[in-house]
Design a protein around this nucleic acid. Structure first.
Length: 469
DNA sequence: GCCCCTTTGAAGAGC
DNA sequence: GCTCTTCAAAGGGGC
C-alpha cells in the first residue's frame, strides 16, 4: 500500500503492496546527467542494492554479507538480463521509450542488438544471449532448449517473480527520465473530452489544453458528448475515455428501487469534484435529474437478461409484458463493484496498449497491463490507489446497504478451477504469444526490419514451435 | 449468446 | 488470521 497519507493509511491498498514498494523517491528526484551507466544499472536492480555499490565503503562489507558474492559470469548474466528486461520494460511502457540513444542503457549500444542478426541471417550471439535471458526471466519454469547453458545453476528465480505468472518486475524502479517518457500525468488525461463539454484547462507552461486533474474532474468519468448537454462535469462518468459507458446504461434511462441517497456534508465535499450537486440528494433512486443513473448501477435487464421491458413505464408493461411479475431479485438493479486501483489503471491504459500492438485479445493485453502495473512507480500506483479509495468511499456512501456479496452469483457460475500450474502447452503457450508480442515490439523499437523473421528465427533458434498457440 | 481467458485488488465466506 | 472465492473491465475466441 502506498503510504500516501501519513495519517490515513486506511484502505489504500493491500499490505503486500507496501511490501512491493521500495524507497526510490530520492532516485526519482535525482535526475543527474552524470549518472554513469553502471550506476544506472545498479539502480535497476533491487532496492536491496543501494546507490553506493560502486564505492568501496565500510557498508560494502555488510552488503557483501547480505548479497551473494559477485561472480563475473553471474554479474554479466544479471546485467544482461537487467538491461534486456529494463529495455523491454521501457519499450513496453507505452512504447514511449523511443530513443535508442539514451546513454544510460547500454543495451541500446550493443552493436549486434541494434541488428540482432548476423550477416548470414542468424541471430547474433548477443541477441541470443539476451533472448535466452529474457526467456528465462519470463519463464523460469519453461524449459527452453539451449538455454541451459545460460541459466545453469545460478539463475536464481527472482523473488518477485511469482510462479504463477512470470512478471517483469523491476521493483517499481523508475528511471529519472521516466517522467519524461512514460506516464506522468497521462494517467489522468485519458483522452480529451469534447472541448465543448469539458472545462478545458490550458497548461500554463505549454499552452496545450489539458485534462483537469482528478481533483478537478474525474478522469474515469469523462463527459458524455450527448447525454448531458452542457452540464459541465458531474456526469462525466457517463462516457469514459474509450467512448464507452463506464457502466452500462439502459437505453432510455433506468429506475431502481434503491433508497434515496443519503448525502451529508462530508459526502458532498467528497463528491463535489466528481458529481454535480444536481445529482446528489434530490433524486431518489440514485437518479440524476437527467434521469441518468450512477455508473455503478446497471440494470439487470442489461447485465443479466436483455429484457427492455423492465425499463418500460407501467403502462407499457401492461401492454407488452403482462406476464408474471418478475422476482424482486431480478428487478434489483445491478450495482457493480467499485473499480479497484488496477481496474482503473487498466481502463485507462488499455487503449494505449491496444494501439501499440496488434493484439486485441484482452487476456493478452491484461498480461501486459499487469506487468506494466508492477513497473509503475510508487507514486504512480498511489494515484490509482487513491482514486480507487475514493471510488469505494463514494460507492459506499451512494449505496450504504450494498455489499459485494450482493453481486455474488450474478454472473454465471464462473468456475475458477485451481489448476496448480498450467502446463507448458497451456498457459505457457499463451504467454509465449505474449512474449512474441513483446519481442516484436522490442525489435520494432530496435528498427529490426523484419519482425516476422525475428520471431521465426527466435523460435527456430530456441527449438520452439512456430505456432505457439 | 454465453462463458472463458487474463490481470490485480477488494471483500466476503469459511475454517 | 488465513485461505479461498467472487467480481469488477475488456474483447477475442470457443462452443
Amino acid at each position: 500500500m502506498p503510504q500516501l497519507n501519513g495519517g490515513g493509511g486506511d484502505d489504500l491498498g493491500a499490505n503486500d503492496e507496501m511490501i512491493s514498494f521500495k524507497d526510490e523517491g530520492e532516485q526519482e528526484e535525482k535526475i543527474s546527467e552524470n549518472v554513469s551507466a553502471e550506476r544506472d544499472l545498479d539502480d535497476l536492480k533491487s532496492s536491496l542494492v543501494n546507490e553506493s555499490e560502486n564505492n568501496s565503503s565500510s557498508s560494502d562489507s555488510e552488503q557483501a554479507e547480505r548479497r551473494p558474492q559477485p561472480r563475473p559470469d553471474l554479474d554479466s548474466y544479471e546485467k544482461t538480463r537487467d538491461y534486456f528486461s529494463e529495455a523491454f520494460r521501457r519499450q513496453q511502457d507505452g512504447g514511449f521509450f523511443k530513443s535508442p540513444h539514451y546513454p544510460g542503457y547500454p543495451i541500446f549500444m550493443i552493436p549486434d542488438l541494434t541488428n540482432p542478426y548476423l550477416s548470414n541471417g542468424a541471430l547474433s550471439p548477443s541477441a541470443r544471449t539476451l533472448l535466452f535471458s529474457y526467456l528465462q526471466m519470463k519463464w523460469p519454469l519453461l524449459d527452453v532448449p539451449g538455454a541451459a547453458g545460460l541459466k545453469d545453476s545460478r539463475s536464481p528465480t527472482p523473488g518477485h517473480l511469482s510462479n504463477k505468472v512470470p512478471v517483469v518486475q523491476h521493483a517499481h524502479h523508475v528511471h529519472p527520465l521516466t517522467p519524461l517518457i512514460t506516464y506522468s500525468n497521462e494517467h489522468f488525461s485519458p483522452g480529451t473530452p469534447p472541448s465543448h463539454l469539458s472545462p478545458e484547462i490550458l497548461d500554463p507552461k505549454t499552452g496545450i489544453p489539458r485534462t483537469p486533474h482528478p481533483s478537478e474532474l474525474s478522469p474515469y468519468y469523462p463527459l458524455s458528448p450527448g447525454a448531458v448537454g452542457q452540464i459541465p462535469h458531474p456526469l462525466g462518468w457517463l462516457v469514459p475515455q474509450q467512448g464507452q459507458h463506464m457502466y452500462s446504461i439502459p437505453p432510455g434511462g433506468f429506475r431502481h428501487p434503491y433508497p434515496t441517497l443519503a448525502m451529508n456534508a462530508s459526502m458532498s465535499s467528497l463528491v463535489s469534484s466528481r458529481f454535480s450537486p444536481h445529482m446528489m440528494p434530490h433524486h431518489p433512486h440514485g437518479m440524476h435529474q437527467t434521469g441518468i443513473p450512477h455508473p455503478a448501477i446497471v440494470s439487470p435487464a442489461i447485465k443479466q437478461e436483455p429484457n427492455t421491458h423492465d425499463h418500460m413505464s407501467p403502462s407499457m408493461h401492461s401492454r407488452k409484458s403482462p406476464g408474471p411479475v418478475k422476482k424482486e431479485e431480478d428487478k434489483k438493479p445491478h450495482i457493480k463493484k467499485p473499480l479497484n486501483a488496477f481496474m482503473l489503471y487498466m481502463k485507462e491504459m488499455r487503449a494505449k496498449v491496444v494501439a501499440e500492438c496488434t493484439l486485441k485479445e484482452s487476456a493478452a493485453i491484461n498480461q501486459i497491463l499487469g506487468r506494466r502495473w508492477h513497473s509503475l512507480s510508487r507514486e504512480e500506483q498511489a494515484k490509482y490507489y487513491e482514486l480507487a479509495r475514493k471510488e469505494r468511499q463514494l460507492h459506499s456512501q451512494l449505496y450504504p446497504g450494498w455489499s459485494a456479496r450482493d453481486n455474488y452469483g450474478k454472473r454465471k457460475k464462473r468456475k475458477r478451477d485451481n489448476k496448480p500450474d498450467s502446463t507448458p502447452e497451456g498457459k505457457g503457450s499463451f504467454s509465449l504469444s505474449v512474449l512474441l508480442l513483446d519481442l516484436s515490439s522490442l525489435f520494432r523499437a530496435e528498427r529490426t526490419p523484419s519482425i516476422g523473421l525475428c520471431e521465426t528465427v527466435l523460435l527456430a533458434t530456441l527449438g520452439l514451435p512456430l505456432t505457439p498457440n
